[in-house]
Design a protein around this nucleic acid. Sequence first.
RNA 1: GCCCCCAUCGUCUAGCCUGGUUAGGACACGGGCCUUUCAAGCCCGAAACACGGGUUCAAAUCCCGUUGGGGGUACCA
Length: 501
Amino acid sequence: MSVRVRFAPSPTGEPHIGNVRTVVFNWLFARKMGGQFILRIEDTDRVRYRPETIPVIMEGLRWLGLDWDEGPGLEELRHAGVENAEAYAVGGPYGPYIQSERLPLYKQVAEELVAAGWAYRCNCTPERLEEVRQTQRARGQPPMYDRHCRYRPPDAISPDEPHVIRLKVPLTGRTVFQDVIKGEVVFENAGIDDQVLLKSDGFPTYHLAVVVDDHYMKVTHVIRGDDWVPSTPKHVLLYQALGWDLPVFCHVPLVTMPGGKKLAKREGATSITEFRKQGYLAEALLNFLALLGWAPGEGETQEIFRREELIERFDLYRVNRAPAAFSYDKLDWMNGVYIRSLSPDELLERLLPFWQEAGLVPVPCPPPTRAVLRRIVPLIQERIKHLTDVVEMTDFFFVDIAPPSADDMLAQGLDAERAREVLRRTREVLADVPDFSEEAIEPPLRALVEELGLTNRQVFGLIRVATTGKAVSPPLFGTLSILGRERVLARLEAAERQFQP
RNA sequence: GCCCCCAUCGUCUAGCCUGGUUAGGACACGGGCCUUUCAAGCCCGAAACACGGGUUCAAAUCCCGUUGGGGGUACCA
């Protein structure tokens, strides 16, 4: 039987990076096993529901290269109010893939459970429930539903009045399940709450919906975050009540923030959209995420794995049991590695939107500008860790700079008189070179250093500040060449004027 | 509180299952080389088996406990 796994986000916002890592494991496992990866939208929480996040979630997955074999089709996406639904519709033989489109199914299963004595109706008010919990807490007891309605006559609550349906958890015994990375996990039934399966608004809770859908969608491996472990016995009970085969459970450890603390906005990106905006490459993020909690083992020290290599080597059974802290440092390094591995043309394509976003390059990019960009790229390729870094590093190519302060230009220890001389002589030399190519510029400039009896650092440093306005810039000769004679001479002159009394 | 999970350098990890390693790699960090700045690259360095008991000739590896961390405890997922 073919492996079938799923990612089932709740459209209440963008999944945080820990969830995304879990998706990566699901996807990798499906691809590795030649199985199917299913996308299912779990929109059963009507209070927090935000339909506009559905396409955002899908865009994120696509950007990362995590394609799904089955998922919401055209009609369901339109029902959900997704604009441009055609762009996202995939469909599949076990749809619908949006839970709000499957309500009758959940209702039917819940009623079957009631009829079979595995569930019961409950019309306790939220107020009563809260009261019960309060007193339990006060007594130091675990807060659980007190099963008030469980012991009322079956016809005490009419199917027509508002009520919920709860799972009738066995009072004794234990529920056991096997987990791919944890092994056997045991729960005492006495500690398991009579979970609500069907809410009073007719929507199922996660617990009912996930079991029903995973069953009917023929999901073979439930790979999800560790936080679901305590709910799993409820699901197991449901499978048993329904007489359905259990899927293989695999609870992967959670991802924490660098400090080891819970994932939270604040410091750094937490969603795919944010990483994308901050100039990370999809292939770098994928590589990084795959290695967060998983390693090929067997003494392997390689860390850079292309998508195909990840698929080939990924092993669900080797996923680490301990939680992993997200490391922006390591991601940044890896992003740099991927940036450096790109061809200059490819890098240019990736960089273009960031230059445009910053307003440095027009949209669309005119061919002559593109030619200039193509010359800039090799100069900055090994100097950026994020695509966004290019903006600050190259802005002086596109906009006029203010003449640098005298202080900035004297940072290399020259006095004003000397600095003026250097700038003047540089201007003379550069005015004379036959063409403004890097090759034509470098030798006379080096000769000038000799002539003035100064160091490379002193002379080139000054020229750098004068022409780019920065103490740190791409390599000088290439930079000057791209800037062009006219602008270089003008900036040198402006810089020189800074020393006029 | 109760339940569940987890524990190797600061971080990600290899090693653990099938006890015997100078406990390996990477990021970050420190130093050096290269060098027009910054990077990149190369070399070197510092850095870990949480603690306590067992079992054993031998424990990072197996068992128990402690501590610590995380998760769950909703008509959220």
